[in-house]
Amino acid sequence: MNDSIWDWERAWDVLPDLLRGLVVTIEATVVGMVIAAVLGLFIALAMRAPSRWVRLPLKFVVDFIRMTPLLVQLVFVYLLSPPEVPALAIGFAVLGVHYATYMSEVYRAGIEAVPPGQWEAATALNMARARTWRAVIMPQAIRNTLPGLGNYAISMFKETPFLFAIGIVEMYTEAQSYGANTFSYIEPLTMVGLLFLVISYPTSLLVRRMEIRLA
């Protein structure tokens, strides 16, 4: 490749900064996924409540979050939060809540995929409703949702660059900072893309393999 376009020295020079940003990126993805997975399950269960006073307001909130951009949500929550709240904590929370609304649909589909015979068998055995959910329904439902949760984990990982909007220095911000200081953007941005690919692609293969096995 033409040295005037690509400089390997600059590429290796920016790599430590990008790896430091990668740690923040992975941290945000992991914590955000934990929040999203737990909260999404609670949303899915709450949406099955018999009371419309529970379902309708919750559905409005879920639809509102889904229909507004993640970037706007990050900035809006950041501006409304007290100054003492760390930006990274805000990023964790917004990522988690945003993706929880999508994961709730994955959980809903997983629950509905449990054969009706499982419910009937639990009823025939006179199992308590709480125990039926805990011991029969949820293990099968979560097993069915694992591929979907994995796909959303990859999507969240790829959307962490939006955290730059609230001052969090992750991979993309590190690349932009390096480019602003050296007037060389090709190397850092290319390296960012490669790092995302190195992590996302094997994960997507794992999720695809999981889908095949569960099918």
Rank of each mutant, 00 (worst) to 15 (best):
L15H: 03
L18C: 06
L22W: 05
A28R: 11
V30T: 07
L41I: 03
L41A: 05
A44S: 09
P50N: 01
S51T: 02
R55E: 04
K59L: 12
R66L: 06
L71T: 03
L71D: 05
L74P: 09
V75H: 12
F76T: 13
L80H: 12
P82V: 04
V85C: 04
I90L: 07
G91R: 06
V94F: 13
V97S: 03
T101N: 06
Y102R: 08
M103S: 05
V106F: 02
R108E: 03
P116L: 13
G117L: 08
E120R: 06
T123P: 12
A124Y: 10
A124M: 15
M127Y: 11
A128M: 08
W133N: 01
A135N: 11
A135T: 11
A141F: 04
N144F: 10
T145E: 06
G148F: 03
G148D: 09
A153K: 06
M156D: 05
K158A: 08
T160D: 11
F162P: 03
A165G: 06
Y172G: 07
Q176E: 12
G179C: 08
A180T: 06
T182L: 11
F183V: 02
F183P: 01
S184W: 09
E187Q: 14
L189N: 10
T190E: 11
Y201P: 09
L206C: 11
V207F: 09
R208W: 01
R209W: 08
R209A: 13
